[in-house]
Nucleic acid binder design. Structure first.
Lengths: 215, 215
DNA sequence: TTGCCAACATACTCCTCGGTATGTAATCTT
DNA sequence: AAGATTACATACCGAGGAGTATGTTGGCAA
């Protein structure tokens, strides 16, 4: 077990690390990278720094792991849909629906990932982790590319408005991802409530790029 | 001059303060609140901390001022459009177009404002500035309310899809505001390029809530 | 011209926090 | 069962940075 601590990318999810990542995501979500202290994460775990630094060599590495966890989860679920059955509009709608749902179900991790690297890091630790940084940005780009390709299909098929796919992706993602800014999970909120929100957002996003009339 | 340093809200824009706010916005945009040092802001001004602390009592107060500047600029420009001529769809489209354009033209200040208070602050300085914090959140809510009312008009008029106005506002803003995440100003970028982006985003946002067919 | 004050710069304090070095109990290996 | 390793906790260090206390300079009033 614990096959690699050297490569922060694509690590096999050690159980202990997973627990740390989840706790870290909650605190990062609340305070952001810079304002989050390792002690605060440890406290949420009911432990001390020692535990965290046993598995992670720096705060940045821990933060990266949250990002990776988020992107892998999304890609793992959405890619099959993109490559599945249905025309571009049907696939895109299913992707958007699932995407929005994951954001809400997995809020801490996903919110941190959506806020993204935001120069906060490039500025803070700079060139130190430049390589890791690049590979995470790559993960994001690859994920966006999945959507861009389906959108491109739709445009070619005449289903969607004629825009550069990469540009059309932006407001589409915007309508969905923006929920990480305003959505606050309420107690008493059922899975159906989440599904309702996801459908609403997906509806707006889809109409935004669909061409012509629909009901 | 310098009528009030006591109330951080609604201050009359002293020229010296404005210059500090603009510089601060640039650095805050780059590194976020927590990772921005007052020294860094001072350096961008070609000055030292002394200059900043002569006008601001804390980093938080300076940050608040950036937020206020952003919200006042938006409200000042968009409110007249909301109360102007045209049906709900026409007014909303004009508002969205201007909103998106301001975000790009005034990127540093607006980007900081869009990222918003994000608990980063509530956590850091907590109850200290709770009152100021509330009033800034109020500014944001009021601004969103301007859109919500026009959207409500459109729904009642049967122009827009039937959704709770407050909820419909979310994906609409999302499609627009998301540009603060991906948009990077290029040299050689003309006003027409910005206008083009604004039109594209506005188009997607409008189709997202418009009911029925359009060209 | 002199005193006063605004508008800064300089120098210092103090505390937080990332990271490390070291200790220690449990578990595993042989 | 006796080292060795894992999985932490504890104790410490050093840097960075917010805020302050104290100069210093130029303009303006009387």
């Amino acid at each position: 077990m614990d096959a690699d601590t050297s490569s922060p990318i694509s690590l096999t999810g050690n159980e202990a690390r997973d627990e740390i990542v989840r706790a870290a995501a909650e605190v990062f979500m609340e305070f952001g990278f810079a304002a989050t202290s390792i002690d605060a994460v440890a406290e949420r775990l009911g432990a001390t720094k020692g535990r965290i630094y046993h598995y992670y060599r720096s705060k940045a590495e821990l933060y990266f792991d949250v990002q990776i966890a988020a992107m892998e989860k999304l890609a793992r679920e959405i890619e099959p849909i993109a490559k599945g059955a249905g025309n571009a509009a049907e696939r895109l709608e299913a992707m958007a629906l699932r995407h929005a749902t994951i954001l809400m179900e997995d809020l801490p991790v996903q919110k941190v990932a959506v806020r993204g690297l935001e120069r906060e890091l490039l500025g803070a630790v700079a060139a130190r982790h430049a390589k890791t940084l690049r590979s995470i940005i790559r993960l994001r780009d690859d994920y966006e590319q999945i959507f861009a390709e389906v959108i491109d299909d739709g445009i070619r098929a005449g289903l969607f408005v004629d825009l550069p796919p990469r540009l059309a992706t932006k407001p589409f993602f915007g309508a969905l991802n923006w929920l990480t800014v305003w959505y606050v999970p309420r107690r008493l909120q059922t899975a159906e409530d989440i599904a309702e929100i996801a459908r609403t957002l997906t509806g707006c996003a889809m109409r935004g790029i669909l061409k012509g009339a629909q009901l």
